[in-house]
């Protein structure tokens, strides 16, 4: 199957649309970094308004680690839309172009093609994430330096020691890859249902927006389904940045508050990926190629 994965990767590499997402991420990150470099202290002061009533925070709060966290908070909501641009076009785009019949008349089976295309879309997604990590984490570390990570959550503040932060980002990026692969798989499923490019992209984005709203609304009826929605779990990369405390309220270095929550989210996302891709394979196997 490797030759067809190579072909799919080569096509992604040659498509101009591929670079829109990379460009968009770079532009967004650089603009935010520039803004925070110029006026970051005011932003930090605004965030720390409440805490400054009680405590004096001394040190480089606005360091590369915090900048990366801010960027991920903002971008991991939007990157799925960029992933959908490619993933939701993988099958339907070729159907629209008419090239699907070129591929499906080769000796490789439809299952192999669909899986190869998903692998290629996944590699693209992961490359996008690596690009995001490079800009959001490493570039921020270079521009803003590093220090302890001072995170202001809704009800409490977490101060993670500098040497205890980097591995958390690695974990968060691995987790985020599951989130984005779920989006890629959803886009892929939508793509298998249509013969045009725009429909599946819009449908994927709409589904993400719809389920995200369901996930954030605190209505008892929705609370029943919330634990099973992929959008409920997509943002749980943040769990890597919450820390356990001992009986004396000392944060335990190297700990994660809720490991079970992360595991549960990964399992649910993995189930979604398997279901979406499985359904795509089934649909494409049954489908008559009329385009």
């Amino acid at each position: 199957m490797w030759p067809i994965i190579q072909i799919e990767l080569f096509k992604i590499y040659k498509r101009p649309r591929t670079y829109i997402a990379f460009g968009a991420i770079a532009a967004l990150i650089l603009v935010i970094q520039m803004g925070l470099k110029i006026d970051g202290e005011a932003y930090a002061a605004f965030l720390m308004k409440d805490i400054n009533d009680t405590l004096t925070v001394d040190g480089k709060v606005l360091n590369g680690y915090l900048i990366c966290y801010i960027l991920l908070q903002l971008l991991l909501v939007h990157v799925p839309l960029l992933v959908a641009l490619i993933a939701a076009d993988m099958l339907s785009g070729e159907a629209n172009l008419g090239t699907l019949r070129l591929l499906f008349t080769t000796p490789y089976s439809r299952t192999q093609w669909v899986l190869a295309k998903f692998v290629a879309a996944s590699l693209y997604t992961i490359l996008l994430l690596i690009w995001l990590a490079f800009l959001a984490l490493f570039l921020s570390m270079w521009i803003f330096g590093t220090d302890d990570l001072f995170l202001m959550k809704s009800n409490y503040v977490v101060l993670i020691q500098e040497q205890d932060v980097f591995w958390r980002y690695l974990g968060a990026f691995v987790f985020a890859s599951f989130s984005l692969l779920t989006v890629a798989a959803l886009g892929f499923l939508m793509s298998s249902l249509a013969n045009n490019s725009i429909g599946p992209i819009v449908a994927t984005i709409s589904a993400i927006v719809f389920f995200t709203i369901l996930s954030t609304l605190n209505i008892p009826l929705f609370n029943i389904v919330k634990p099973y929605l992929f959008t409920t779990h997509m943002n749980n990369w943040k769990e890597f940045f919450d820390i356990q405390v001992n009986d004396s309220n000392d944060a335990i270095t190297g700990s994660i508050l809720n490991v079970a929550k992360i595991k549960n989210s990964i399992i649910i996302l993995a189930i979604h990926i398997a279901l979406f891709v499985g359904a795509s394979v089934w649909i494409m196997k049954k489908k008559d190629i009329l385009s």
């Binding site: 965030l47 409440d50 805490i51 009533d53 009680t54 908070q73 903002l74 909501v77 202001m152 959550k153 809704s154 009800n155 409490y156 503040v157 996930s215 954030t216 409920t232 943002n235 749980n236 943040k238 919450d242 508050l257 809720n258």
Partner: peptide, 26 residues
């Protein structure tokens, strides 16, 4: 003495489940 600490979800973008124990303690 400490004062209340609370940041709106819109700022923290923390829309998930809150840590009830931490909230209680706070």
């Amino acid at each position: 003495n400490t004062k209340d600490y609370k940041l709106p979800n819109g700022i923290t973008l923390e829309f998930g489940d809150e840590d009830p124990a931490a909230k209680q303690k706070a």
